[in-house]
Design a protein around this nucleic acid. Structure first.
Lengths: 239, 239
DNA sequence: AATGAAATTTTGGAATTCCAAAATTTCATT
DNA sequence: AATGAAATTTTGGAATTCCAAAATTTCATT
């Protein structure tokens, strides 16, 4: 019954070099996160500890830890009777999280102006360039991943570790909603323009402008998510 | 072996009314948090899962969950070999967390200007009054608790649930450092003045002023913590 | 006394077991 | 067919067990 060993010896095991060897709980959390974000586990789906543990080839013990992690990220929630399910946040909840995310990114941008290395600034510029060039070519998921990578780089450039951790948490929580809205072609031009404004302000190391540009960007994220929801409602009503 | 029942039947059990009955892990986390904040478990102390579980009269299973919760809050950390210990954040780490806290509170204050109920604004004013009146009278812990309650009220008044949760997390993480620094009499007058500025700006529902006042307040928290550390270094050197 | 290899003990991760409570199904009664 | 009490099954929480790896102690060798 060495399922544990099986899992640890999989493809991703070689990435772990000096870090504390990943626990089964972390591995399971990674897999479940992906399932949830890609909607293989849809919002609201019940998660049976026994079934999911069996499906992952692990026991309930590490699975429970994994669910606790995902609860923190806001991807899993517990009913009053402690039955876990995939979170299904309301529009209002998503907007509340986005509001916090906006403040975090504005802070990160401001800090990054002072502490980003020249190579980090170039990295941001480069990612924006990739988005510009791939605007028509890139599949939605790739375009979106580049987008996320840019935001992540800015937060990393802030040099504030607590901020990175909290930002990652909100990112996980908001990933799906943002991805869904980014698939709409409509907003792509605006997204690009905003990204370029952010990169420019950062390159000029202008704290006020960077923070402002990031805040604007988040506001339009809210708009886009609202529109995406409206579209979906429309679709439902029409069909 | 119904230790579980023993614990659940203690004093605090009556508070749980309609909420999902607290798990042993949550109860244990509450106790450990208090031990850590009051330094009954000092920074850096090793936490033996078996010993601590026995001391709390529970098994390792819920204790492990509790430790995972406290890790999220930043009160417990794991060594490379996964041995848990009480976190012992460097000054730099504390300042990083305070920086994020500042942004969170500024956001909360801004939002509260729009969405605070009149009674919440009065609650804030009242807490500031209590601090003013108790300035010479109140024991440090009480004075500090009132301080914390005021900040908490503002965040609650923002109406943003995600913000409340994240703020609570940073609060746990920073509680001890802030308490230590608040014990110094030196800063008390300034603390009071700043609190009154915050309450006034909020009462006027002036978003810019409220956010600014909260940011100022956090900056002087950073100063106070630095001074407190310097004092302690001095003490050590002198004795 | 200093060194370090070998033996022993202690540690946390994970699987398993046990249990009470919640959810579901069965089935008698109308 | 509708109702709802009783029986059954399923669920998650917690204790226990098992194990490999890390930490510590022992002890032979210099």
């Amino acid at each position: 019954m060495s399922k544990a060993a099986d899992i640890l010896s999989r493809d991703d095991a070689d990435l772990e070099l000096e870090r504390p060897r990943a626990t089964l709980a972390e591995i399971a959390a990674d897999k479940l996160r992906e399932f949830i974000l890609l909607e293989k586990l849809p919002p609201g789906a019940a998660i049976s500890e026994r079934d999911v543990a069996a499906a992952l080839g692990i026991s309930r013990t590490p699975l429970k830890s994994a669910l606790a992690l995902l609860e923190q990220e806001g991807l899993v929630e517990y009913s009053v009777t402690r039955r876990p399910r995939v979170a299904d946040p309301s529009l209002n909840t998503i907007i509340e999280s986005l509001t916090v995310m906006g403040a975090l990114e504005a802070l990160a941008g401001g800090l990054a102006c002072a502490s980003a290395s020249q190579s980090e600034i170039e990295e941001v510029a480069d990612l924006v360039r990739q988005m510009r060039e791939g605007s028509d070519r890139l599949p939605p998921l790739e375009f979106f991943r580049t987008d996320m990578r840019m935001h992540d780089t800015i937060v990393r450039a802030s040099g504030n570790r607590a901020l990175m951790v909290t930002h990652r948490q909100y990112n996980a929580r908001l990933w799906r909603a943002r991805f869904v809205s980014s698939r709409r072609k409509a907003g792509r031009a605006q997204t690009l323009a905003e990204h370029e404004a952010i990169a420019a302000a950062l390159a000029a190391r202008d704290e006020i402008a960077t923070a402002a540009a990031l805040k604007t960007h988040l506001s339009s994220a809210v708009q886009n998510i609202k529109s995406a929801r409206a579209d979906r409602e429309h679709q439902k009503a029409g069909s």
